[in-house]
Amino acid sequence: MMLAILCAVLLVGAIAEDEQQNFESKVSPEIEGDAGRGESLYQRRCGACHSIDQNRIGPKHQNTFGSKAGAVEGFAYSKALKELDVVWNEVTLDEWLQNPSAMAPGTRMGFRLTDEQERADIIAYLRQVSEAAAAQVE
C-alpha cells in the first residue's frame, strides 16, 4: 500500500516537472524569427490596434524591444501594465503574446497569438525596428 502511494506521488511529481519544462520551453523559443515575415504578420495580426510610430488603440512599437513594459510616452496604460516589472525581449514578448492576461492580469490587451513561428517572426521584426530606431538616435 505504502509502495503504491509512493509511486503515485512520484508519478504526479514527474508529470508536474514535465509540465513545468513544457511551459519553460514555450516561453524560451528555440525557433528563429524572420523579420521580413514579421513585418507582414505585424500588419495582419497587430495592425488593428498598433502602429510602429503612432499611439493608437495600443502603444506604438518603435522602441519596444529592450524597453520596460508600460513606458511609451503619451500612452494611457492600464494599471496592470504600469505595474508589470518586465523588460521586453524575446522571452518576455513571447510569453506576452501567448497570453497577455496571464502575464498581467487586468491588462486591456487580450489578443493571443498561438502560432510559435508567427510570434518569433513578429518579435524579430520588433527587434529590428527598435534597433533601427536606436541607431537613428545615435
Partner: peptide, 9 residues
C-alpha cells in the same frame, strides 16, 4: 483585416 484578426485573437 487587422480588426477581424484582433477579434478572433
Amino acid at each position: 483585416l487587422g480588426a477581424a484578426n484582433a477579434y478572433l485573437g
